[in-house]
Amino acid sequence: MRERLPAVYMVANKRNGTIYTGVTSNLVQRVWQHREGLGGFSKRHDCNTLVWFEIHGTMETAIAREKQIKAGSRAKKLALIEAENPLWRDLWPDILNGSE
């Protein structure tokens, strides 16, 4: 995976725990920042495990998708994660190794 691609992502502190939803143009760098505890919400809530992400062709579509997800219920966020990552595995190694 190229480093600079618009993406929407969710990081969590544990399975079914606190979830942070964000958008970025550099997923690897942004998730690294979460893992290092840089940032407000994710640092306060220890959200440092990448549990879901979606790559987009443009930043505009990524931002629109982030807004859609944030406007949805917690149940919808959990369903997105569970559909792609039912074990809530940390996807950090996947984005480092280039798989999606």
Rank of each mutant, 00 (worst) to 15 (best):
R2F: 02
E3A: 10
E3Y: 07
R4S: 14
L5Y: 03
L5R: 11
P6H: 12
A7N: 04
A7P: 00
V8K: 10
Y9C: 06
M10F: 09
V11R: 07
V11W: 07
A12M: 02
R15C: 01
R15N: 06
N16P: 01
N16H: 14
T18L: 15
I19P: 00
I19Q: 00
T21A: 13
G22H: 08
G22W: 08
V23E: 14
T24K: 02
T24S: 08
T24A: 02
T24V: 02
S25E: 14
S25V: 13
N26P: 07
V28W: 08
Q29T: 05
Q29I: 01
Q33P: 02
Q33W: 06
R35T: 08
R35M: 10
R35K: 15
E36M: 15
L38F: 12
L38I: 15
G39F: 05
G40K: 15
G40T: 15
G40R: 15
F41T: 11
S42W: 15
K43E: 10
R44Q: 13
R44L: 10
R44V: 05
H45W: 00
D46I: 03
D46K: 15
C47G: 10
C47P: 10
C47E: 13
C47H: 06
C47K: 05
T49C: 11
T49F: 06
L50P: 03
L50E: 09
V51S: 00
W52Q: 03
W52V: 04
W52N: 06
E54H: 13
E54G: 02
I55H: 01
H56N: 11
H56I: 09
H56Y: 13
G57C: 05
E60G: 10
E60Q: 11
A62V: 04
I63E: 12
I63P: 01
I63C: 08
A64W: 08
A64Y: 04
R65M: 14
R65F: 03
R65I: 10
E66H: 05
E66L: 02
E66I: 01
Q68W: 11
Q68M: 13
I69N: 02
I69K: 09
I69D: 02
I69M: 05
A71Q: 09
A71T: 05
G72M: 04
S73L: 14
S73M: 12
R74Q: 12
R74P: 05
R74T: 12
R74G: 05
A75N: 03
A75Q: 08
K76I: 12
K77A: 09
L78N: 04
I81E: 03
I81M: 07
E82Y: 00
A83G: 05
E84F: 11
E84V: 15
P86H: 09
P86K: 10
P86D: 02
P86Q: 11
L87P: 01
L87Q: 14
L87G: 11
R89S: 05
D90K: 03
L91E: 04
W92E: 06
P93V: 01
P93D: 01
P93W: 01
I95N: 05
L96I: 11
L96Y: 03
N97A: 09
G98R: 04
G98N: 03
S99A: 06
E100W: 09
